[in-house]
């Protein structure tokens, strides 16, 4: 294994980590502020990707597509919060899981009804196509570098929102004591809608950003949703910083595991069975990481709630 291959895999891990962060940040915000388990978060990821694919197809502009994805997912999120989620805050988690699971089905079949069953076309914009040569002779796709940059920018923006703005103060106050801030005259219903739309918008943005390098199809959000749950459990539920660190940890563990574990098994056995066993263990790596973190810190890395 060459140092170049290793460095390239670290970049790949970072890239997949920041995309997971975009998904997990919304999920953890919604859970932290409203105490709601939102299984339909993956559906909003899909809404973003489909909105981006159809706008990019109609206008040819990738930037417009990103704006449309954000708007569509945030709009869908706000609508879902007003129509469905609002009735669930006082129910227990089982009711929330059932209702948001139903939302997954409604979104999936609704998208199929609108767009058909066949995957949509969405490509990397020409100005982000091709590869760049990084120091050390690493040839790396420009688009993936841009994804890392966008992910880190969003992380910085969220940090700013959370620490330096009035909305951020309300969000943190809402996490700590929702009766108190309601008593202080903050319209908690409106705050919940805004937070839900923000989380949904982030998921939609993630969907639009990975759309050009993945398959834009019905059901594309569910595999990401599972990983996003792993990320917020590792990072600590409700913590945005935890979502970033957890996302990067999961991205790096998954990518490097897929490279290193088969290589490790090749030392002991023939290439075909090493590939098979290595792949099997690599798919477990992030769950082993999660278990280890939970043994060490039962509330996750930055979690406050038990």
């Amino acid at each position: 294994m060459t140092p170049i291959l290793f460095a390239e895999q670290v970049l790949n891990g970072l890239q997949s980590g920041v995309m997971l962060f975009l998904m997990a940040a919304g999920l953890t915000l919604i859970f932290g502020v409203m105490g709601l388990i939102n299984l339909a978060h993956g559906a909003l990821f899909m809404v973003g990707a489909f909105a981006a694919a159809s706008v990019a197809g109609a206008t040819g502009s990738f930037l417009l597509a990103l704006v449309a994805a954000l708007a569509a997912a945030a709009g869908a999120g706000a609508m879902v919060e007003l129509l469905v989620i609002r009735r669930l805050y006082d129910r227990d988690h089982l009711d929330q899981v059932l209702a948001t699971f139903a939302l997954i089905l409604i979104f999936s079949e609704g998208t199929r009804w609108l767009f058909g069953s066949f995957p949509l076309y969405l490509d990397v914009p020409p100005w982000l196509g091709g590869t760049v040569l990084l120091p050390g002779g690493i040839e790396y796709p420009t688009y993936r570098l841009a994804l890392i940059a966008v992910g880190l920018l969003v992380a910085a923006g969220l940090w700013w929102l959370n620490t330096c703005t009035r909305l951020g103060i309300r969000i943190r106050a809402g996490e700590n004591d929702r009766e108190m801030i309601a008593a202080l005259g903050v319209d908690i219903g409106k705050l919940y809608t805004v937070v839900f739309a923000l989380g949904a918008g982030l998921a939609g943005l993630a969907g639009a950003l990975v759309g050009p390098i993945q398959s834009v199809q019905v059901g594309m959000g569910e595999p990401v949703l599972i990983l996003a749950f792993v990320v917020i459990v590792i990072g600590g539920i409700g913590s945005i910083k935890g979502a970033l660190v957890g996302g990067l940890l999961v991205g790096l563990t998954d990518t490097l595991g897929r490279l290193l574990l088969p290589a490790l098994f090749r030392l002991f056995t023939d290439p075909a069975s090493a590939a098979s066993a290595g792949s099997a263990f690599a798919s477990m790596a992030i769950y082993i990481l999660m278990a280890a973190v939970l043994i060490w810190r039962p509330t996750g890395l930055y979690g406050a709630r038990a």
Partner: peptide
């Protein structure tokens, strides 16, 4: 061998 349902093939 990749994982079934895998979406990212950068590695």
């Amino acid at each position: 061998f990749t994982q079934l349902g895998q979406t990212d093939y950068a590695a």
